[in-house]
């Protein structure tokens, strides 16, 4: 098989897996939330979520009607073959998935309001590139829901306020978001860099599994504090009140300009959809979030 065909097939599979089956860490977090939730309305909604997940898997149909904006993260080994063909293959995979899975066509021209009908368009699907050592290509698909995207936030904190300002900004964003992003959510926080870098890191943070602790002990502590604070607001599942407003908080950081303290907040729906696979130089494929199907 030609490398571009392998990439297209793998990306198609990733999109299909992502919108139909949640990664096990997300399912476990939702199950735990259901068991530990004390509010009646919260429990009812978490139970509905778990049943919906089960039905989607059984019927092989997307979990939610909003199958999101399609975003890919590619870690490309500098020695890998066919890198110039990756973007075109990802576009073909997106079109195919739109027709065959199916995905809802979610790519609209902001000026003419015309929907392309196949989830592709200018810069969409968006591809984030990272060049690494080696000869393999790792692809992650992130179908990003619109309702949760609408409550994203960027704050340019005064550096003097520092970490305190960050904490306040994140909690204010959570309270302002309320019921809108379909809680309980995964919360991504990006700190430092610049405005664009903080937002990019915040969204990238959504990719880290909920059961994988941050390797940096200071960030681990910060994540725990923000998690507990978000869940003590009482917003709860679907904003109907309860203990679980977020399933997890993941923080990423970059060094910052002495005069700037950018904080990005990205949200993912309770249906925290993502899927990853690696294509090795010999064409062998390893799926890491979902079993190969």
């Amino acid at each position: 098989m030609e490398i571009q065909d392998t990439i297209e097939d793998v990306a198609f599979n990733l999109l299909k897996q992502a919108v139909i089956r949640l990664p096990s860490d997300v399912k476990e977090a939702l199950q735990r939330a259901y068991e530990e939730e004390t509010s009646e309305a919260g429990k009812v909604n978490l139970k509905a979520i778990l049943t919906n997940i089960e039905f989607a898997e059984k019927l092989n149909t997307p979990i939610c009607q909003d199958t999101g904006t399609i975003i890919f993260y590619v870690k490309a080994g500098a020695q890998a073959r066919g890198l110039e063909k990756v973007e075109a293959a990802l576009r073909r995979a997106t079109k195919r998935a739109t027709e065959e899975v199916p995905l809802r066509p979610n790519a609209v021209d902001p000026l003419t309001r015309k929907n392309s009908g196949d989830n592709t368009g200018r810069f969409i699907p968006f591809v984030h590139w990272e060049i690494t050592d080696g000869d393999s290509i790792e692809i992650t698909a992130l179908p990003k829901g619109g309702g949760s995207e609408n409550v994203s936030a960027l704050g340019m904190i005064t550096p003097g306020e520092g970490i305190k300002g960050l904490k306040k900004f994140v909690i204010d964003a959570v309270i302002k978001a309320g019921a809108k992003p379909c809680p309980p959510n995964t919360l991504g926080v990006g700190v430092g860099g610049g405005a664009d870098i903080a937002m990019k890191l915040a969204k990238k943070a959504l990719l880290r599994p909920l059961n994988q602790p941050n390797l940096n002990p200071d960030l681990r502590k910060l994540e725990k504090e923000l998690y507990e604070a978000a869940n003590s607001t009482g917003i709860g599942p679907m904003g109907l009140g309860g203990k679980f407003t977020v399933l997890g908080v993941n923080v990423e950081y970059a060094h910052r300009h002495p005069a700037s303290y950018p904080v990005g907040v990205a949200y993912q729906c309770w249906a925290a959809r993502r899927a990853t696979a690696r294509i090795n130089a010999d064409g062998a494929v390893e799926y890491s979030t979902h079993k190969a199907r």
């Binding site: 305190k164 300002g165 306040k168 309270i175 604070a229 003590s232 709860g236 009140g241």
Partner: peptide, 18 residues
């Protein structure tokens, strides 16, 4: 719920030390 969350805001701030 919104009203209760608003009432809790200062407690949440305090817990975070902000």
């Amino acid at each position: 719920v919104k009203k209760k969350v608003e009432e809790k805001r200062t407690t949440v701030y305090k817990k975070l030390g902000v």
